[in-house]
Structure formats: C-alpha cells, structure tokens
Amino acid sequence: MSISSAIKSIQDIMRKDAGVDGDAQRLGQMSWLLFLKVFDAQEEELELELDDYREPIPEQFLWRNWAADNEGMTGDELLEFVNDKLFPELKNLTAPIDKNPRGYVVTQAFSDAFNYMKNGTLLRQVINKLNEIDFTDSKERHLFGDLYEQILKDLQSAGNAGEFYTPRAITKFIVAVTDPKLGESIMDPACGTGGFLACAFDHVKANYVKSGDDHQILQKQIHGVEKKQLPHLLCTTNMMLHGIEVPVQVKHGNTLNKPLSSWDDQVDVIITNPPFGGTEEDGIEKNFPSDMQTRETADLFLQLIIEVLNTKGRAAVVLPDGTLFGEGV
C-alpha cells in the first residue's frame, strides 16, 4: 500500500473512534505514533552502526516490541498499555540531555502529548496501517515528506493549522536568499512544524556537505523553538526524517519567555514566520526594554531577532503588512 493510501486509511479509522474529535486531534494522535515509529527505525540503524549502543528508552516501549506485530496487543489490553504504562513512562523518563540526549528528545516530545483514541481495536488497526510504511527506505521517507506537507495543507484549508504551516515555495525562497552555509548557526525561534529548518538542512546538505564529518557538523547547526506541543512534536519527527539523529536543538518552549538582555548567543542565520495578529500572555512584555514593551507577538519576535542576530548575520522574516511602518510599537 502507498503511503498516501495508508494515511488516508488511518484518518478513516480514526473517524470511527469516539475519542478523536476533528482534524487537529487526528493529526495529534497520528503524530505521536509516527514519532515512535520513526524513532525506532532510527534506533535500529544506530544499533547497527554504534559499538556502544544503548537503548535510550526502556526496551518494552520501542515500537518493535509493542506495536510492530500486527497480531500483538489489541482492545483493552493495548489501551491499558498505552495509557497506563507507555505515556506515564515516556513523560517522566529520567533522561539528562548530556547523558541520554535521544531519551531527552522522547521526553520532550511526549511532555504534552495525549492518546485521544478510546477504542483499542481501532488503535491496533491504525498501528497496523503504520506498519505498512517502511521508514528505513529513503524513497519512503522522501514520499512521506511530501505527504506530511499535504496533511498540513489540508488542515490549513480547514482553518486549523495556519499558524504553524508556511508554504514550501516561501520557505525555499527564503532559504535560497539567505543561503545558510556549513558551520553557520541556523535558527527559527518560532519553528512550528520545522518547514524552514528542514529546508535549510536540505540546502546546506545539497550545497556544502562533502563528507561524513560535514554531516555531523550540519546536524548540530540547526536550532528551533516551538511553544505548542503538536507542532513541536511534528517538527521533531520532521527533523528525524531529514536525517538529524538527535534533534535536541529543537526546544519545546516560548522563545519570548526569557529576558532579552540575557541572550548571549549570536546566530548567523535566522529564518522564521513568527505568529502574528495575536498577543502574548501577561508578563511576557516585561522581558523587553520598557520603551519597547508590547504584547503583539510579531513585534516582540522582531526585537528578539535583532538582538540575537550576529553582526554579519542574515535574517529573513515573514511579517504582516504594517509591522515596520505602523504607528507605535
């Protein structure tokens, strides 16, 4: 079965489940399942490559050990395992970023994730459909990237995901103009599902990576922060699909929730489409100079970008009309 057919079948199955309400929840449900499957596919590769390999999470929670067998757990047994064992364990996993970075990635990904499905038999059917996709196959990964984007487009057309999806044509244009190079720090402070970061990764890989050492450098130069759980989880999965083995640089948090004066990092390239048209929670504006305080999100991000950008750095930002020339701050 093709990836597009598998995903469509998964969406149809989820529509039968009383616990999944609407496209956003279907995407959220699919996202943590996809994450675990992609994560385990990478673990199998690392297990073959590394002599000192150790599982970053308890072995029983690796996809291969609870989900890969199509005749495995189902019904109430599967629901109990997911709700009472898998989620609590992965949410509360002790995984220091310096000692177990891949475990840390899992904990961050599951920090606010949720199993919406209430029917264990339907959940097994969804898992079995995912088992038809081989994420160790490079062609499958490439096709999934296209489909992944289509899912987000569908949600955007439904009015649910516009805040964290930027059309590919825009991301490609911005990345081409800024031309990030190997070794330069690349940041999206409101990275959503990782469209800019993935495009930048592909750009550097295609134009500047010449060796395995170069590839390792590239993996460490991509940085992103996303406030909301769902796009953060999608971004983490997106980075893994693009070849970043340990996407610890993709943080789950609010970039603006830090005093502007405390930013020591200087970034070479910033590419972003920050949320605009909304306001931040009370108190966030106090992280900025008194004469520049506002709760308008886009204005705060613009100040942040100016502050953290390297003197000779480049930035390309999608902003609404009037941001640069409107009255006041």
Rank of each mutant, 00 (worst) to 15 (best):
M30L: 15
V175Y: 05
F173V: 10
K228W: 00
M240S: 01
N119T: 02
I244A: 06
I271G: 04
A109D: 00
D202C: 03
P259Y: 03
Q221K: 05
R141N: 10
E43K: 02
G243S: 06
F173P: 01
Q219M: 15
P247G: 00
I13N: 06
E184T: 07
G28V: 00
G145L: 12
C191Y: 03
M1I: 07
C191Q: 05
Y53D: 11
Q156G: 13
E47L: 11
T311V: 12
G322D: 07
Q216W: 02
T94G: 02
P167T: 08
M1V: 10
Q219C: 14
G19W: 03
L300D: 01
G22K: 03
R141T: 08
N238C: 08
G212R: 11
M117V: 11
I133L: 08
K153Q: 12
E43P: 02
D202N: 13
K139Y: 11
G253T: 04
L62H: 14
P96L: 06
G162T: 04
G120C: 03
D23L: 12
A161Y: 01
S2P: 14
H142V: 08
A158D: 13
A206M: 04
A200R: 07
Q60A: 13
D264T: 15
L90M: 11
A109I: 02
L304M: 13
G326S: 11
G278Q: 09
P96V: 05
S5P: 00
D98Q: 13
Q229S: 15
H252M: 06
D268H: 10
I127V: 15
C191P: 07
E47F: 00
D134T: 03
K16N: 14
V317S: 06
Q25W: 00
L302W: 10
N131S: 08
K37W: 04
D12C: 06
K286L: 15
E280L: 08
S262P: 01
D264H: 12
K205C: 05
I170E: 04
I174K: 05
I217A: 11
K153T: 12
Q216P: 00
K153A: 10
M292E: 15
G278L: 08
Q293K: 12
L46R: 11
D265M: 13
V82D: 04
F114R: 12
K227W: 03
G277M: 01
L50F: 09
N207Q: 02
R141E: 11
L230T: 02
F196D: 07
A109V: 10
Y104F: 15
T171R: 04
L122M: 08
T107W: 00
G313W: 05
K91H: 03
A200K: 04
E49I: 10
K99F: 08
K220A: 15
I97H: 02
V225K: 10
R102N: 11
T279M: 09
N310C: 11
D213R: 12
L93T: 07
G195Y: 04
I170S: 07
S2K: 13
T236Q: 03
G224F: 09
N115G: 07
G28Q: 09
D52L: 05
E140F: 04
K312Q: 15
F301K: 06
L123Y: 08
K220S: 14
T178A: 14
G145N: 10
K251L: 14
L302Y: 13
P320M: 05
